[in-house]
């Protein structure tokens, strides 16, 4: 991703938090949206991450920028979840309004909307570490190495989590024939 671009520039070069916001804001928002299924939580996360980036950039050493950024993002997300769990009325959304396994609509457009709703709802049912690995890989577009750095686990664990996550999704998303 952008780290390669930044890495090839002069040693002095460091992104400002505005650079990060412009280049990654959308990715961070989509990461949070897919992880929570909720636009408000996604917006909160973007703000929190940009704040942490702004505070943390001075200590960032040129290296894997994606690993650094996504570790911050992930920690901010998990801190947010922990905070919410202390307030019982706002649990993470479960997407229970979606009927998994319902027949596809004859209308093509409706069907595709429903498909992404179904995928979203299935994602929310995955245990966190699998959901995170799949979202970072397929929604954000990180490499296994970058995911390993973000989640602080070995690459082999990432590979296994992505596969098992996809496998669980496949089982949830199979429509009865």
């Amino acid at each position: 991703m952008f780290s390669q671009l930044w890495g090839s520039m002069t040693e002095e070069f460091k992104p400002t938090w505005e650079d990060v916001a412009q280049r990654y804001g959308r990715k961070i928002y989509n990461f949070a949206y897919r992880l929570t299924g909720n636009p408000d939580d996604a917006a909160d996360l973007v703000q929190e991450v940009l704040l942490r980036v702004r505070r943390g950039l001075s200590s960032y050493e040129p290296g894997s920028f994606d690993g650094w950024l996504w570790r911050i993002t992930r920690n901010a997300f998990l801190d947010g979840v922990r905070k919410k769990q202390r307030r019982p009325e706002s649990a993470l959304p479960e997407g229970d309004h979606i009927m998994l396994g319902a027949s596809p609509s004859p209308d093509e457009v409706l069907a595709s909307v429903r498909l992404s709703d179904d995928v979203q709802s299935a994602l929310l049912k995955l245990p966190y570490e699998f959901r995170e690995a799949v979202v970072l890989c397929d929604v954000v577009g990180l490499t296994y190495d970058e995911i390993a750095q973000a989640a602080d686990v070995p690459v082999g664990t990432v590979r296994s989590r992505i596969h098992r996550g996809r496998k669980m999704l496949r089982e949830m998303l199979t429509w009865p024939v």
Binding site: W17, E18, A21, Q22, G25, R26, I28, Y29, N30, Y33, R34, P39, A42, A43, V46, Q47, L50, L115, S116, V119, Q120, V134, D138, V139, R166, L169, R170, L173
Partner: peptide
């Protein structure tokens, strides 16, 4: 399933969140 995940529509981040 991989293709389905990758074809999920991308949300536009609300402009107010960015500088």
């Amino acid at each position: 399933v991989r293709a389905t995940l990758r074809l999920l529509p991308e949300f536009e981040v609300p402009a107010a969140l960015l500088p």
